[in-house]
Write a protein that binds this DNA or RNA. Structure first.
Lengths: 245, 245
DNA sequence: GAAATAGTGTCTTTGAGACAATATATG
DNA sequence: CATATATTGTCTCAAAGACACTATTTC
């Protein structure tokens, strides 16, 4: 290797950099991911995670935010966005060398997604129904990593409130945990543990109006980011029965 | 945006991609990071994390492994390597648009590092003595993220054994935790908790030879990756005294 | 009142941490 | 034997989870 005083485009191999998004939400009791159907080759007609190239003057986070807003049609209100991992196998895109910086977004239930110019269709897919080989590129792997990150973070952060509307009941928050973790939780113990975690939720003083049973208190998100003490994730219901055999 | 059938170099902005390494070890009771002194501009003479460009046909992980082996002079034996985060602010490198994929490496105490062609000098620096503005580029931020990742992972994984030689005593393992977390741990409780975490360590049956007191049993790393139950990180000794005021 | 959902009480088990006590080496 | 380090025992406290019980609504 020779020592150089400055770099020109000949000194380093050029890469394309994309931002790809794992956008998760909870719909009808299931953890769902936003998938688009690709319009162009490669993988035309195959579903993929939304994403696109990072602009030359654009922050990585900005690129992710822009694409998130475009797909969800929502000005980034209470949506959490964090960097996941970067994927850069030399052959992951047949066209050229592409490095994909993947992001994880958590959102409350949103209106139906918007199809973009480069995507025929978009939908919320329950993550458990996405086959390991159903997505373009290495997006199935990225999705898996994103789901696992979300599952882990619910244990020790207050991120579950990102899946809820601005105001919610204890039962709604519990159903978020149940959907993301794929478990059933004891309502009584959950209630106590959430209230014991300082700054997790903030009581509004009001109660829910309609409903069958006793009206539930209404909470908003609290100011804390980390859960102290954390909530522990039990084994999945299906795994528990499997282990009991 | 127009729809295109194929991409050429005009269709996307070219980026340089580097792999930068946070290589941590425990030396003389302190968590240390490998720093190099930059030979070239920008930041000539300033310390930085080791790293370099990713080759056109190279995996991101391969690029990190190669640079790790070059700097430590060690064929990657029991060294743990995992991806940390990717940093790509448009102005982080004054020469051009660079996206840096950062990696975290954990190693047992190694021989003195090797200076490379593009580095005047290399040394193990205790992480607590690296000032927030002492490193080139945004490497101080990367270092902070790496240290925090390592600290967190010792709680729920068996990675602490990566900081130990292939065989170690319970006290050596405990001193790893104490150095990384900056705390003092109760030897008795630590002993029990490590043995209670199935697959964390494997007894060899032998005992240490030299030493002042009762000879310690010698262990090797176990087969488990996650700690069940985890070890909990207490507040730093200094923070505990501060909180007591 | 029956059913449904929200919320509280209580008991058992488990693990964390403080610290006493014992074991086995060296000088 | 004094000292140093390793290892085991024991006690207390906090949190997790199971589950009985009470509270407040709708039909």
């Amino acid at each position: 290797m020779t020592i150089k005083k400055s770099y020109t485009s000949e000194d380093f191999p050029p890469f394309a950099v994309t931002a790809d998004l794992v956008i998760l939400t909870v719909r009808e009791g299931a953890l769902c991911v936003l998938l688009i159907e690709r319009a162009d080759e490669p993988f035309a007609g195959v579903e993929a995670l939304p994403g696109g190239f990072v602009g030359p003057e654009q922050t990585l986070a900005d690129a992710a935010r822009t694409k998130l807003a475009a797909k969800t049609g929502v000005e980034i209100a209470p949506i959490h966005l964090e960097q996941l991992q970067t994927y850069g196998e030399p052959d992951r895109d047949p066209r050229m060398r592409v490095v994909s910086v993947a992001w994880l977004a958590l959102a409350a239930d949103l209106p139906e997604p918007v199809a973009g110019v480069d995507a025929r269709n978009a939908r919320w897919a329950p993550v458990d129904e996405v086959a390991a080989d159903a997505l373009a590129f290495d997006h199935a792997r990225i999705l898996r990593d994103g789901v696992e990150r979300a599952r882990a973070k619910l244990e020790y952060t207050t991120l579950a409130t990102c899946f809820c509307p601005p105001e919610f009941t204890m039962a709604e928050l519990r159903r978020v945990y149940e959907a993301v973790w794929g478990v059933t939780l004891d309502a009584a113990n959950f209630h106590r543990k959430v209230l014991a975690s300082e700054g997790f939720v903030e009581p509004t003083g009001r109660s829910a109006q309609q409903g069958k049973g006793r009206p539930a208190q209404i909470f908003g998100p609290g100011s804390a980011v980390e859960l102290q003490p954390p909530l522990h994730r039990p084994a999945k219901d299906s795994e528990a029965t499997a282990a009991a055999r």
